[in-house]
Amino acid sequence: MIPLGKAVEEVLLTLQQQHELPYCQVMTGFPHPSGVNGHRKEQFAANFTFLAQELQKFFAAVGQ
């Protein structure tokens, strides 16, 4: 799952803490793509390296 935005991300992180959702199924750090989010491009650029690492971990876990 890729939560798009902080609100959805917080819900999924809470579910993980409650052991309702495996950690390997959620990739965090993606900004909400809405045009209302005027900072989305800056957020994405600032988190790009982290997001690329998260994608690599996610696909490595899926391939197992």
Results as ranks from 00 to 15, higher is better:
F59M: 04
V62S: 00
K41N: 13
P3K: 06
V26H: 07
Q56A: 15
P3T: 12
K6D: 13
A60K: 08
V8W: 05
Q53G: 11
L13S: 08
E54C: 04
I2E: 01
N47R: 14
Q43W: 06
F48P: 00
M27A: 10
L13N: 06
Y23H: 10
A46K: 13
G63Q: 15
A52H: 11
G35M: 03
G5C: 02
S34W: 06
E54S: 12
F50Q: 08
F58S: 00
H39P: 00
V26N: 09
F44W: 13
T14N: 10
L21M: 11
A52R: 15
H39L: 13
R40V: 03
M1H: 12
G5A: 00
V62G: 00
V26L: 07
Q25F: 09
T28H: 01
P22A: 06
Q43Y: 08
Q43R: 12
L13H: 04
L51V: 03
T49F: 10
L51T: 08
K57T: 04
Q53R: 08
T14G: 08
F48K: 15
F48S: 08
T28Y: 01
G35L: 08
E54R: 09
G63K: 15
L55T: 14
L15E: 09
G35W: 05
E9H: 02
I2M: 11
K57N: 12
Y23N: 10
L12N: 01
V11A: 05
A61G: 01
A7I: 10
P31L: 07
K57D: 04
H32C: 15
R40A: 13
Q16D: 03
I2G: 07
G35R: 05
N37E: 05
E20P: 01
T49C: 07
H19P: 00
E20Y: 09
H32E: 11
A45I: 02
L4A: 12
V36F: 10
P31H: 06
G29F: 04
Q17M: 02
V36S: 09
M27H: 02
P3W: 06
E9P: 09
H19N: 09
E20I: 05
M27S: 09
K57R: 15
Q17W: 01
A45L: 11
P31A: 05
T49H: 12
M1D: 11
K57G: 02
G5N: 02
F50V: 00
V26R: 05
H32M: 10
T49Q: 11
F50I: 00
E9K: 04
S34I: 00
K6G: 09
K41V: 06
E20M: 14
R40H: 14
H39I: 05
A7V: 11
Q64Y: 13
Q18K: 11
L4S: 04
Q17S: 09
N37T: 07
Q16N: 09
P31M: 06
L4H: 05
G38S: 07
L51Y: 10
G63E: 15
P3I: 11
V62D: 00
V36Y: 07
H32L: 12
F30I: 14
Q43K: 13
I2V: 15
T14A: 08
V36E: 11
Q64G: 14
V11T: 11
L15K: 11
A52Q: 15
A46V: 03
N47W: 01
R40G: 06
A7E: 15
H39G: 07
Q64H: 15
F30T: 13
I2R: 03
F48L: 14
